[in-house]
Every structure is written in C-alpha cells, then in structure tokens.
Computed example of a mutant assay.
Amino acid sequence: MRRPAATARLGFVLAAPLILVAALALGAAIGETSIDLDVVAKSVANRLWDAGYAVDPIDEGIVWNYRLSRAIVACCCGVTLALSGVVLQALLRNALADPYILGISAGASTGAVAVAILGFGAGMLSLSLGAFVGALVAFGLITLLARRAGSGPGAIILAGVAGSQLFNAITSLIVTRSANAEQARGIMYWLLGNLSGVRWDDAWLAVPAALLGLLVCLFHARALDAFTFGAESAASLGISVRRVQAVLISVAALMTAVMVSIVGSIGFVGLVIPHAARLLVGVRHGVLLPVSALTGAVFMVVADVVSRTIIPGQVVPIGVITALVGAPAFALILIRGRHVQ
C-alpha cells in the first residue's frame, strides 16, 4: 500500500513542473497571432540568460512583455482560488463553498474599489491590503448571518449569496457616486475578471501569494482531513480548532484578495476545481491540495487562451469564460447533492 502511494506521489512531483511549463508555453504561444513554441523558448532564453538567439523583436516583446506574465498570473490565480475552495469546503463541510459564492470575492472587490476610488487609508493601504480587509469583513459578516439564521448546511451558502449581493451593491454605489466615466468603465470591466493589464509587477505579487498559500495549506493538510468529520472530531484528535480555522480562513482571504486586486473577481474556479480533483485523487488533502493547485493553474491558463481567441479581435473577460464552465458544474453539484440526500 505504501509503495504504490509513494510511487504515485513521486510521479506527481516529477510531472507537475512539466505540466506547468507546458501550460505556460502554450499560454505564451497561442493568441490572435500564433507564435511557434521554439520562438517562445528562444525569447525566454534571451531575456533570462541573454542567449543571443535571433528572434523577431516584435515576437519576443509579445511573448515576454504580454503573454508570459499574463500566463504566470493566470496560473497563480488558478492555484489560489482552487486552494481557497478546498480549504473552505473542508472547514465548512459544504460542497458548495468557494470564495465567490460565499461573498469573499465581492468583499475583496469592495475593499479594493474603496481604496482606489475613495482613497481609504489615506494612501497607506495598497489595493491588495484593502481587498484583504474587505474579504475578512465580508466573511465575518456572512458567518455571523449564517449563525443567526440557523445551523443547516445551506445557511452559509444563503448568507454568502446575500452578502455577495450586498457588497456588489456597495461597490456599484461607490463607482456610481465617486468615479468618473473612464474610471467606471475600467472598474466594471475589471470586476468581470480581466487579465489584459497584467504585467511583471503583478506577477511578482501573485507568485509569492500562491506559493505561501500552498505551503500553509499543505502544512495543515492533516488538520483539513480531520475537519472532514467536523470540528468536534478534529478537536478530539488534538487539533487546535480555532487556531487552524483562523489561520486557514485568513490565508484563503489573503489569496483571494491578492488575486482580486490584480485581476478582479473570478467566479466558480474555487468550486469546480476541487470537485474535479477529488474525482481524480480522492479526499486526502495531502494529495488533493497539490492536485487542485495544478489543475486550477492549467484551467486558468486554458481559460485565458480561450478568452483571447474565442472572438477574433476582441478579448472576453476571463470571468465570463469561467462562469460559462462553472455555472453548469454548479448545477450538477446541486443535483448530485440532492440525489445523495
């Protein structure tokens, strides 16, 4: 039993970087103007190691300055949202929990917009920090509402829907009252999920957030296994329930906030990817977390490629693509849960 498990784990460790590199290469190669993979490789080599390959400067600029940074941020976005979904579904013991449905993304959007438009923090708060505060406030409010509403499994989801609508309304009010026409157009497009303006400065923020989130979640993998059977069972196994909940919820909120501040609110990734990963590897979080992270990364790169190519000459917000996939999956999860009950 241990040898096959160890072999599978080693195989994943070896395959994951190759799959990730392949996804990044395809993300940099595919677009309105296709670029050969060898040109992508030479462009990266020229930028990283000054290799001196003869490459068209326009192609090299497209690969390095536009597509590769965008693909890396898309990967990080997929990793963080998928991990947040796994964590929230385990802690809340609800198959429908994810940052978007629970209103965490909406709260993060409100926090970021409040900093950008209203100037909250007097210049001392960045967009990411403002989004983090908004995400925590949203989750606290939704948790309080769910506890007052009742302890049924659907209470947290209904509270999340209500909270999401509330924070979306606050965001719209801020934009309507305080933003000029140009700001309003940019923010509304950004709120749909947009990678068009992503550059390397954003990647330097997204990569540490994704790596930190992955490491913290993996460190608490056994605790998440215990939470699968409920908080009381976790406490009986020696898990510090309140500490683990505080740490993991804060990490999930932080990861969501960082991504929202960069690319806007992207829905359903944290819902769909964990369920897809469970179908592949089961429910043990030591394996589920890295597989979910990898699956989310690849999914977001593919969604970004589709958003750039589905309509010639136009870029569709990536949130539209994830919603087109996530909404039917959400319906299937609802129907499956009803049959199980």
Rank of each mutant, 00 (worst) to 15 (best):
L334Q: 02
A293C: 02
L83V: 15
L237H: 02
F268H: 09
V258K: 04
A276W: 01
H339P: 02
G213L: 12
A231W: 05
M255S: 00
A277C: 07
P99V: 11
I321W: 02
V283P: 07
R278K: 04
L254W: 05
A169C: 15
I19F: 13
I310A: 14
S261T: 03
N194E: 08
L212N: 05
G85C: 01
E182S: 07
I311Y: 06
L294V: 13
R242I: 02
A71Y: 09
R242T: 10
V320I: 15
G282N: 01
L96R: 00
A162L: 13
W190Y: 12
F268W: 14
V283M: 10
R93I: 00
R67P: 05
N168H: 05
V306W: 02
L192T: 04
L125A: 06
G61D: 08
V269K: 05
L83I: 15
A90V: 06
S105V: 11
I62T: 06
R177V: 15
G107P: 00
D56Y: 13
P153S: 08
L324V: 13
D59S: 12
L211W: 06
A246D: 09
I239W: 06
L212P: 08
G130H: 12
A179W: 11
L102S: 03
V115T: 11
L83E: 12
V13M: 10
I19T: 13
V175D: 01
A323C: 11
A252K: 04
L166F: 15
S43E: 09
I117A: 04
D225S: 02
T110L: 15
A45M: 13
Q165H: 14
A162Y: 10
F167P: 11
C76S: 09
L91K: 00
L141T: 13
G154Q: 14
V55W: 09
I335F: 15
V198H: 07
L294E: 00
L205Y: 10
A135M: 01
Q165I: 14
